[in-house]
Nucleic acid binder design. Structure first.
Lengths: 244, 244
DNA sequence: CGTACTATTGATAGATATCAACGCTGGTGG
DNA sequence: CCACCAGCGTTGATATCTATCAATAGTACG
């Protein structure tokens, strides 16, 4: 079974066997981290790069009145901070949401990885996709209404998790509380709850505990105005399953 | 007088004289572009990089119901799309807001620039600051209320324009309509209008036509919860002018 | 089998959007 | 140089959405 990092980077394009072997080396030793643990705090300047192997983490900021905004989800295969080589201090905090397993990759090893052209290109691609995703989140929160925000997020995660093999058809584990969804979408947890009920009532999803089933992916995508172009994945087979 | 690009890049650190001379070459020939003109459209894959020399441009997306979300302002010294070398197609559109003067820098020239270590580092820094700014905009729209959103944006622009020498004390030209501010902040133009009136009534700003005066920068920053760390500028002299 | 989150529900308040009209201003052509 | 026009800014009245507050019900975990 391919590791999540290799799997993610190969979403951009195939890697030489030597690169794959190197990537297998890089992802250890792993470290288990509990839920709701800060990995890097605003103001710090870590020298290593964290990579998520299992579980969900996030970037967030808290504003003076206490409101928290989650600015990104980090799922298996995602790097936390390829930045850090240039900037002096983090301007936000990175924390686990669920229990996670994480690797700390030393700076030197990242540089060694960047020597390999295929990997370097894949790193670039990953960073650009992260930024595009951030833009899409801004659209989500700034322009869409509550139902669409949540639906759009679920569509995005379906594709991202599919890329690293963490879906089962249109089903996946979403180890996130409603309060965390609220901090992500700029809503209240009460309102997120009501939105989820509407999505269930409309036959779009099933969500029980952490177990999400997207009952009609085509309809959920149409409903939320989801356009996957910003994820910059290679052409899919069934580009759009169209309506029905 | 130093050109805006050099000025912006030197906000990160001084450049060798040779680099400066090179940058002077790179920013021509200039091109004048009217307001509200698309420079690059979603779906296209341009081979050149656009640099803004004068005026304001933006990144935006339009969602199916017709709502537009502006995701970034591009001010003099900002690159539009250093990305494009890796990704196949733009996932958003770039357009002028005001009349602009722009340079198209050919791919080859960008690569030549990247050969120079100081410039390459400055480019990296600029790209990372762009991303950090995007995160802050997500916080703005997702977590702050209307008055604070607008005030925060004005504080950010004060610093960004200061960097490239486009302020006069706490005064600058803001060539943006209220409708565009609305598309930026996720509000309605009517509501932006009312917010601006409140900021005026509270003695925080003066805004007549395109001419903005920040009457009490310290208070405006405190009011909006503005923390400049995400712009990653070098230490300022008067780090915080404190209250009054 | 408690205990503490997490999810759910109902009632109400508050913020922001929507709709519609009018006034201003800067630019353009006569 | 003036008069007109179109876009922008402003205002008021009302509708909607989303937040807030508060209580109850589930659920998972030790």
């Amino acid at each position: 079974m391919m590791n999540v990092l290799t799997r993610k980077l190969e979403a951009f394009g195939p890697l030489p066997d030597a690169d794959r072997l190197f990537l297998d080396e890089v992802i250890r030793p792993v470290r288990a981290v509990g839920p709701r643990v800060d990995l890097i705090r605003e103001g710090e300047a870590p020298s290593d790069v964290n990579l998520i192997l299992e579980g969900f983490a996030c970037r967030y900021k808290t504003i003076p009145n206490g409101t928290r905004q989650i600015m990104a989800y980090l799922v298996p295969g995602d790097f936390c901070d390829l930045h850090v080589f240039i900037l002096k201090a983090m301007d936000h905090t990175i924390a686990t949401l669920s229990p996670c397993t994480v690797v700390k990759i030393p700076r030197a090893q990242i540089l060694a990885l960047m020597e390999r052209p295929a990997i370097a290109r894949a790193f670039w691609w990953a960073a650009l996709v992260d930024e595009a995703t951030l833009r899409e989140w801004l659209v989500n929160v700034g322009a869409r209404k509550a139902e669409h925000r949540v639906a759009h997020l679920l569509c995005e995660l379906l594709l991202r998790l599919e890329t690293v093999g963490l879906t089962n058809g249109d089903t996946y584990e979403l180890p996130i509380t409603q309060a965390e969804l609220a901090d992500t979408t700029g809503l209240t947890s009460v309102h997120v709850n009501r939105v989820l009920q509407r999505l269930r009532r409309d036959g779009l999803i099933t969500l029980k505990g952490k177990h999400l089933v997207i009952l009609d992916a085509a309809r959920l995508k149409a409903f939320s105005g989801f356009n996957p172009n910003y994820l910059h994945l290679p052409e899919q087979n069934g580009i759009s399953e169209q309506s029905l």
